[in-house]
Amino acid sequence: MQYKLVINGKTLKGETTTKAVDAETAEKAFKQYANDNGVDGVWTYDDATKTFTVTE
């Protein structure tokens, strides 16, 4: 399945996608991506759209 990440950071904004077997695996990949880019915020997930959002 394909999952999307929407980033609403202080210095980084945008979107990225990943393919993963489940939401938990996608979340780990997205959190690593956010961490690598210095984004630390509040996470939400919408199962209907398979979209994670992180807001600083």
Rank of each mutant, 00 (worst) to 15 (best):
M1F: 14
M1P: 11
Q2T: 15
Q2A: 08
Q2R: 11
Q2S: 10
Q2Y: 14
Q2V: 15
Y3F: 13
Y3W: 06
Y3M: 02
Y3H: 03
K4E: 04
K4N: 09
K4W: 13
K4S: 07
K4V: 13
K4I: 13
K4T: 15
K4G: 04
L5C: 08
L5W: 01
L5N: 01
L5H: 01
L5T: 01
V6L: 08
V6W: 04
V6Q: 06
V6H: 05
V6F: 06
V6Y: 07
I7V: 09
I7L: 08
I7A: 03
I7Q: 02
I7C: 05
N8D: 10
N8R: 10
N8M: 13
N8Y: 12
G9P: 03
G9C: 13
G9M: 14
K10F: 10
K10W: 09
K10Y: 08
K10V: 13
T11P: 04
T11N: 11
T11L: 11
T11R: 10
T11V: 11
L12Y: 12
L12V: 13
L12K: 11
L12M: 13
K13H: 10
K13Y: 12
K13F: 12
K13R: 12
G14L: 14
G14I: 15
G14W: 15
G14D: 09
G14C: 14
E15A: 09
E15S: 13
E15G: 10
E15H: 11
E15K: 07
E15R: 07
E15W: 13
T16Y: 15
T16N: 06
T16Q: 09
T16S: 09
T16W: 15
T17Q: 08
T17A: 08
T17S: 10
T18G: 04
T18H: 08
K19C: 15
K19I: 15
K19S: 13
K19H: 14
K19D: 11
K19R: 15
A20I: 03
A20F: 09
A20R: 03
A20D: 03
A20E: 04
A20P: 02
A20S: 06
A20T: 05
V21G: 10
V21N: 13
V21Q: 11
V21C: 10
V21F: 12
V21D: 11
V21H: 13
V21K: 14
D22P: 01
D22C: 05
D22E: 04
A23R: 15
A23E: 07
A23D: 05
A23Q: 12
A23V: 13
A23S: 09
A23P: 12
E24S: 11
E24P: 10
E24G: 10
E24I: 11
T25L: 07
T25Y: 06
T25Q: 13
T25H: 11
T25E: 13
A26G: 02
A26I: 02
A26C: 02
A26F: 01
E27Q: 10
E27C: 13
E27D: 04
E27I: 12
K28W: 08
K28Q: 10
K28Y: 07
K28L: 11
K28R: 11
K28I: 11
A29R: 13
A29P: 01
A29C: 11
F30R: 00
F30I: 02
F30T: 00
F30P: 00
F30C: 02
F30L: 05
F30A: 01
F30G: 00
F30S: 00
K31M: 09
K31S: 04
K31V: 06
K31F: 05
K31R: 13
K31Y: 05
Q32M: 09
Q32K: 14
Q32H: 07
Q32E: 09
Y33P: 00
Y33V: 05
Y33D: 02
Y33S: 02
A34S: 04
A34V: 10
A34H: 01
A34Y: 03
N35G: 07
N35V: 13
N35Q: 14
N35R: 15
N35S: 14
N35W: 14
N35Y: 14
D36N: 10
D36F: 07
D36V: 09
D36Y: 07
N37S: 09
N37C: 12
N37F: 14
N37K: 13
N37W: 13
G38D: 07
G38Q: 07
G38L: 06
G38H: 08
V39R: 02
V39H: 04
V39D: 01
V39E: 02
V39C: 05
D40M: 13
D40R: 13
D40A: 13
D40C: 12
G41Y: 03
G41M: 02
G41Q: 02
G41T: 02
V42F: 10
V42D: 10
V42C: 09
V42R: 08
V42I: 11
W43V: 01
W43M: 04
W43T: 01
W43S: 00
T44Q: 09
T44V: 10
Y45E: 00
Y45N: 00
Y45H: 02
Y45T: 00
Y45F: 08
D46T: 05
D46Q: 04
D46V: 05
D46N: 09
D47P: 13
D47C: 06
D47F: 07
D47V: 10
D47R: 06
A48G: 07
A48E: 12
A48D: 11
A48M: 12
A48P: 07
A48I: 11
A48C: 08
A48S: 11
T49V: 05
T49R: 06
K50H: 13
K50P: 00
K50C: 06
T51Q: 04
T51Y: 03
T51C: 06
F52G: 00
F52E: 00
F52L: 01
F52Y: 05
F52C: 00
F52T: 00
T53E: 05
T53Y: 12
T53R: 05
T53D: 03
T53F: 10
T53V: 07
T53G: 03
T53S: 06
V54H: 00
V54C: 07
V54F: 03
T55C: 06
T55Q: 06
T55G: 03
E56S: 06
E56K: 04
E56N: 05
E56V: 10
